[in-house]
Lab assay of single mutants.
Amino acid sequence: TFYNFIMGFQNDNTPFGILAEHVSEDKAFPRLEERHQVIRAYVMSNYTDHQLIETTNRAISLYMANL
């Protein structure tokens, strides 16, 4: 899942690491979701930090390219 992918960046001092920290603390994050459209919609609806949203979009693109 995307959640498992992004958790691989925990403790990294990178934008993906920052995203992983936010996702791990977000109890409502769709952890079992595999459809990138649902993940993107969730982030757009629940996150207000523009940098975090952009990082999510980049992470989703990388995740999709590696499926």
Rank of each mutant, 00 (worst) to 15 (best):
T1L: 07
T1Q: 03
T1G: 09
T1I: 05
T1C: 06
F2V: 03
F2N: 00
Y3H: 03
Y3D: 00
Y3I: 04
Y3K: 00
N4V: 08
N4L: 10
N4E: 14
N4G: 10
N4A: 13
N4C: 13
N4R: 07
F5C: 02
F5K: 00
F5A: 00
F5R: 00
I6L: 14
I6T: 01
I6W: 04
I6Y: 05
I6A: 01
M7E: 02
M7T: 05
M7L: 10
M7H: 02
G8W: 08
G8Y: 07
F9N: 01
F9V: 02
F9M: 05
F9Q: 01
F9G: 00
F9A: 01
F9Y: 09
F9K: 01
Q10P: 04
Q10M: 15
Q10W: 13
Q10G: 06
Q10E: 08
N11W: 09
N11C: 10
N11Y: 12
N11E: 06
N11T: 07
N11A: 07
N11D: 09
N11V: 05
D12P: 07
D12E: 12
D12G: 07
D12H: 12
N13Q: 10
N13W: 06
N13P: 12
N13T: 08
N13C: 11
T14N: 07
T14G: 15
T14D: 06
T14Q: 03
P15R: 08
P15L: 12
F16S: 02
F16T: 01
F16P: 01
F16V: 02
F16G: 01
G17V: 04
G17R: 06
G17E: 03
G17Q: 06
I18D: 09
I18G: 05
I18K: 14
I18F: 10
L19E: 02
L19V: 05
L19G: 02
L19P: 02
L19Q: 03
L19H: 01
A20H: 02
A20Q: 04
A20V: 05
A20I: 04
A20D: 10
E21L: 15
E21K: 15
E21S: 13
E21P: 03
E21N: 15
E21Y: 13
E21V: 13
H22V: 14
H22N: 05
H22C: 08
V23E: 01
V23I: 15
S24T: 09
S24E: 08
S24L: 12
S24A: 13
S24R: 15
S24K: 15
S24V: 07
S24C: 09
S24P: 04
S24M: 13
S24G: 09
E25M: 14
E25S: 13
E25N: 15
E25F: 11
E25D: 08
D26Q: 07
D26K: 03
K27M: 10
K27V: 11
K27G: 09
K27I: 12
A28N: 15
A28F: 14
A28T: 14
A28C: 13
A28S: 14
A28E: 11
A28R: 10
F29Y: 04
F29E: 03
F29L: 03
P30R: 02
P30T: 02
P30F: 14
P30K: 02
P30L: 05
P30Y: 15
R31E: 03
R31T: 06
R31Q: 07
R31N: 04
L32C: 13
L32Q: 12
L32A: 11
L32I: 06
L32D: 14
E33N: 04
E33D: 05
E33V: 05
E33M: 05
E34S: 15
E34V: 15
E34T: 15
E34H: 15
E34I: 15
E34M: 15
R35K: 10
R35M: 06
R35V: 05
R35Y: 05
H36V: 15
H36Q: 08
H36N: 06
H36E: 12
Q37Y: 12
Q37L: 09
Q37V: 08
Q37T: 11
Q37P: 05
Q37I: 08
V38E: 09
V38R: 07
V38P: 04
V38N: 07
V38G: 04
V38T: 07
I39N: 01
I39Y: 01
I39T: 01
I39S: 00
I39W: 03
I39K: 01
I39C: 02
R40M: 15
R40Q: 11
R40A: 09
R40H: 10
R40S: 08
A41N: 12
A41F: 09
A41I: 08
A41C: 11
A41K: 09
A41M: 10
Y42W: 05
Y42I: 03
Y42V: 05
Y42E: 03
V43R: 00
V43M: 10
V43D: 00
V43Q: 01
V43S: 02
V43K: 00
M44H: 08
M44V: 10
M44P: 00
M44C: 09
M44K: 09
S45W: 06
S45C: 10
N46W: 06
N46Q: 07
N46P: 03
N46I: 05
N46K: 08
N46Y: 08
N46V: 09
Y47S: 01
Y47G: 02
Y47F: 07
Y47M: 04
Y47N: 01
Y47W: 14
T48S: 11
T48K: 12
T48A: 10
D49L: 05
D49Y: 13
D49H: 05
D49M: 06
D49S: 08
D49W: 05
D49Q: 07
H50K: 14
H50Y: 12
Q51P: 04
Q51S: 13
Q51V: 13
L52E: 01
L52P: 01
L52I: 09
L52T: 03
L52Y: 04
L52F: 05
L52M: 07
I53D: 02
I53V: 09
I53K: 07
I53Q: 08
I53C: 06
E54N: 07
E54L: 10
E54W: 06
E54T: 08
E54F: 06
T55L: 12
T55V: 10
T55R: 04
T56C: 14
T56S: 09
T56P: 01
N57C: 12
N57S: 10
N57I: 14
N57T: 08
N57W: 11
N57P: 02
N57G: 08
R58S: 07
R58G: 05
R58V: 08
A59R: 05
A59D: 01
A59T: 03
I60Y: 05
I60W: 06
S61G: 10
S61Q: 14
S61F: 12
S61V: 14
S61D: 15
L62G: 03
L62S: 05
L62I: 10
L62K: 06
L62D: 05
L62M: 12
L62R: 06
Y63D: 01
Y63C: 04
Y63T: 01
Y63P: 00
Y63I: 06
Y63F: 11
M64F: 08
M64I: 14
M64H: 13
A65F: 10
N66P: 06
N66M: 15
N66D: 10
N66E: 14
N66W: 15
N66V: 13
L67Y: 08
L67K: 14
L67D: 08
L67V: 11
L67E: 09
L67S: 11
